[in-house]
Design a binder for these strands. Structure first.
Lengths: 180, 180
DNA sequence: GCGCCCATGTAACTAGTTACATGATTCA
DNA sequence: TGAATCATGTAACTAGTTACATGGGCGC
């Protein structure tokens, strides 16, 4: 019974950059990972506790002087090993659940007009996302170190390509539907 | 507290085509929806029961003569209404969790060689998927009715574009990583 | 008689979300 | 003084998966 829980690796990965509190982890996922990964407190805090019990992380109360004291977790040697072994492992087949496709699959219950409206709304959403990606990209362009920038460039590029792909797909769909 | 459970709509949608048993639904998701939607028995049977309790579906024992008797569910008028109202509603913001991106985000823990190997494995997987899509597409091309074919064409096209996009992204990544 | 497919279902589990409770500090 | 942010955590819930138990019919 191997644990398939990927959240633990996201957390271990963030700890590999620097020691973090649960709050820090939430902030980092909300900032850096939000386009392809999210976590919430209800998952983070219990997971941190679990990681500590398994000896993959250890915690230390830190009183920074300002603000309330933090419970800061850092990666243990064992945690680093577990994380890196995941990093090198093959991705497990992920489950796809694409709501727009489910709706399109059942689109014979809709009029052509309704289908087109839905697709146009989808295009609009993706265009907004694309704009957001471009904004974030512009911010990252100012970071000079190549190696550090790599991960941001690669993941953002994926997002941009994805949004563009969906937009093109939806445009083609509209053409197809209109030609019926 | 609105129910976000999308599986119920997938099931209602399949029932909208024809009355089905739990077993039938599993087969249909495994055949027609598998590229973008999946369900398993542990979810289907309890959900069918729930849908019946809510008056969205009703069941009838059917003894087909051959094989064991089936518990066949069909959509009620109320079920049809609920399904169509979902169909017309806006998609709820879906959560992204893309494992390969999470790994790429942490790729500074890997050597260039390891990163490239991972990306190449990913390309390989997507190429296999693409082949699968093309095979299914060839089968569908033989169905003459335009309207019936629509959903299959649209959803398959999405899959193909997605796989191609990922392959191109990964190829670009390999170039970028090698140029460091 | 064996293996495969049809068919239904449950129990135990893992995963993930939402809402809430709490309280300190910082800054306008 | 009141709003925003820092900070931790739990309870209750929804969602989804895996593994198992059961048994009939069909074809070889």
């Amino acid at each position: 019974m191997p644990k398939e829980n990927k959240s633990r690796y996201a957390i271990l990965g963030l700890l590999s950059f620097m020691p973090c509190s649960g709050y820090d982890i939430k902030k980092m996922t909300d900032n850096s990972l939000k386009f392809f990964w999210s976590e919430n407190y209800g998952h983070i805090y219990p997971l941190l506790k679990e990681l500590e019990e398994e000896g993959l992380a250890d915690s230390k109360k830190v009183d920074s002087g300002k603000g309330p004291s933090k419970n800061v977790f850092s990666l243990t040697a064992k945690g680093k090993k577990v994380f890196e072994s995941w990093l090198k492992s093959a991705e497990s087949r992920q489950r796809y659940r694409i709501e727009i496709l489910l709706k399109m699959f059942f689109s014979s219950h809709l009029s052509v007009k309704e289908i087109v409206a839905k697709l146009e709304a989808h295009i609009c959403e993706q265009e907004e996302l694309l704009e957001e990606y471009k904004k974030v990209e512009a911010e990252f362009a100012e970071i000079p170190q190549k190696r550090y920038r790599l991960s941001a460039v690669i993941t953002l590029d994926y997002g941009k390509r994805h949004a563009q792909m969906v937009i093109q797909w939806a445009r083609e769909c509209i053409k197809t539907v209109n030609s019926l």
